[in-house]
Write a protein that binds this DNA or RNA. Sequence first.
DNA 1: GAAATAAATAGTAATAATTCCTATTATTAA
DNA 2: TTAATAATAGGAATTATTACTATTTATTTC
Lengths: 121, 121
Amino acid sequence: MRYSHQREIISEIVHSTNSHPTADWVYGEVRRYIPNISLGTVYRNLKQLTDEGIIRTIYDGAVARYDWNRSPHDHLKCNVCGEMIDVQLPNDGLRRTVKDEYDFEVSDVEITLVGKCNKHA
Amino acid sequence: MRYSHQREIISEIVHSTNSHPTADWVYGEVRRYIPNISLGTVYRNLKQLTDEGIIRTIYDGAVARYDWNRSPHDHLKCNVCGEMIDVQLPNDGLRRTVKDEYDFEVSDVEITLVGKCNKHA
DNA sequence: GAAATAAATAGTAATAATTCCTATTATTAA
DNA sequence: TTAATAATAGGAATTATTACTATTTATTTC
């Protein structure tokens, strides 16, 4: 993968936020720096960055979101404010359970807890 | 919600499989019984059945899948054969952890373990 | 049981998110 | 510096899904 200015900016933008942005939001931000960038370029680069392991793609219902946080982690999704919060939850138990009970070889764990975050006591 | 033949058949089809079918697959099946049913009718009814709690909608990446199994459960997704297997995993620990550590009020737990199922030793 | 009411349908157009295509531009290797 | 080719912009195409509308059908009322 050779250098491109567009990819550099896209990567920086994803790394600049904890908001798990959508492709469309990233597109809007990149245009502040590269006004005539095309949406296809944004998608292509988000995919390439994902393939290279530089960012992660997560799915929130039907839309893709992008996450700079590559370390294994889970998400809390607040139904009230829509925010998605990174958390690290223990999953050794889950892995062991499915290995023992279903003979299933786990390569990836995806946990999302939906509910109400602490901003809405 | 008043009776309709179309909804009846759609519901039966979703209940007849463990394959977590997509709307498109359901559409193909329903047409064996109602050849001129429209895709919009399938989507509308799948949504209504979901709203009524008769079936569940789950997301597999970007596509919606439908599941007759309403009891709380999780999924094992096999990367080799693509199958999605229903399992019941304990999640009391997870709930307690986020309650205690993040003051997050959980209403729903979504767990998908990705890997290799026991058909591919 | 027939007419009135309104929900549901078929068929099709529209939308949203994403991918694909192609002529042109830019990066890198020699 | 040039040759090779990856990446781009711009737009068309695709896929999944929702919206619209005239017509049909299930239910309600008399």
